[in-house]
């Protein structure tokens, strides 16, 4: 059992507050992704869980042990670093065996575990090489194998794929997902890449300004953003936001159209670009740029002077200057409080 509980963890660097009272529970064997732009505190939170950074206040629990006062080696974790951190003076075999040797494991068991994890990561033919003789992708495989060989309760990954080129990243992403699903570990994975987050996570914690804005499953985070930030951060292109003016109880006027919405003093209308379809009664969008992408076409337009993007079927070929009428799918419309930026 390796449920991770983070209770009121805060971190100050001098006068800068990197984390504000973060609370988060990660279930046993869950794949949790911490997602956010650089500087949002996601790496700091990961390093606090690893024990590489000490929290200014708060508690970290792994299973039924409080670990925030323990050194990294006593926390039952393994970590994969962004720049791989493969020891250059040791062979691949000795790199993977490093943690096992620290545990004084018998040689036979060391060999068994190294061979098994090397096969799992497809690096069994590299075991005699040094890190200087490996490509970036191979080093990353060694780093993951080294973590897996420990058979830890928790694996922490700090942007492990961000130094790889795009094609390799895709390949490794799928492989990581398969490998980690087959192991019995709880995984915390830090990334700024929303596609990576969506494809890997059981749950995503979206972070902003040292706080967790929303922690939910990938589809939930995408469909029902808890805050305006989540909608604007996740999705490519991101969610569209339009100002709304009240038009009676629960009725809001947006871009000349009236939509049923929440009963609130003020609200902001939001819709994903792909949740629109051409219709004579839709929002009038003045087309600015048209980008055909093959299966669909990305249209950048303005609605009532506000930027607006739509993903439409590529059989439709609007031209800049045209006015498209785009109707939002009623069940996909979301509303936000313009003051608190929270979902209504």
């Amino acid at each position: 059992m390796a449920e991770i509980r983070i209770k009121g963890v805060a971190k100050d660097f001098g006068t800068f507050t990197a984390l504000h009272d973060v609370d988060l529970t990660i279930a046993d064997r869950e794949f949790m992704v911490l997602l956010g732009a650089s500087g949002c505190g996601k790496t700091t939170l990961l390093r606090i869980i690893a024990g590489l950074e000490t929290a200014t206040k708060g508690e970290v629990w792994i299973g039924d042990r409080r670990v925030d006062q323990l050194p990294p080696r006593e926390r039952g974790i393994a970590m994969v670093f962004q720049n791989y951190a493969v020891f250059p003076h040791l062979t691949v075999f000795e790199n993977i065996a490093f943690g096992l040797r620290m545990k004084r494991m018998p040689q036979a068991e060391v060999t068994r575990r190294v061979t098994r994890t090397a096969e799992l990561m497809h690096i069994e033919q590299l075991l005699k090489r040094y890190s200087g003789q490996l490509s970036g992708g191979q080093r990353q495989r060694v780093a993951v194998a080294r973590a897996l060989a420990m058979e830890p309760e928790v694996i922490l990954m700090d942007e492990p794929l961000s130094n790889l080129d795009a094609l390799l990243r895709l390949e490794m992403r799928a492989e990581l997902k398969g490998v980690l699903a087959g192991s019995n570990t709880t995984t915390i994975y830090v990334t700024h890449d929303q596609v990576e987050a969506m494809s890997l996570a059981d749950r995503i914690s979206v972070m902003n300004g040292g706080k967790i804005v929303q922690a939910a499953g990938p589809v939930e985070v995408y469909r029902n953003p808890a805050a305006r930030f989540v909608g604007s951060f996740i999705g490519n292109p991101p969610m569209n936001f339009l100002s709304a003016s009240p038009a009676g109880a629960g009725q809001w006027q947006v871009g000349g159209q009236v939509f049923a919405g929440p009963e609130a003093p003020a609200a902001e209308f939001a819709i994903r670009p792909e949740d629109l379809h051409p219709s004579d009664t839709g929002l009038p969008a003045e087309v600015r740029v048209v980008e055909p992408l093959g299966p669909h076409t990305l249209v950048t337009a303005t609605v009532a002077g506000q930027p607006f993007r739509a993903v439409i079927d590529s059989t439709l070929v609007p031209r800049p200057g045209d006015v498209l009428h785009l109707a939002p799918m009623a069940d996909r419309i979301r509303w936000f409080n313009p003051e608190t930026q929270k979902a209504l």
């Binding site: 690893a50 024990g51 590489l52 050194p71 990294p72 080696r73 974790i77 393994a78 970590m79 670093f81 962004q82 720049n83 951190a85 020891f87 250059p88 490093f98 943690g99 620290m102 545990k103 080294r146 420990m150 922490l156």
Partner: peptide, 10 residues
Amino acid sequence: ELEEAAWTLG
């Protein structure tokens, strides 16, 4: 990071 990796490895 090499040192940090060593700490996490025991």
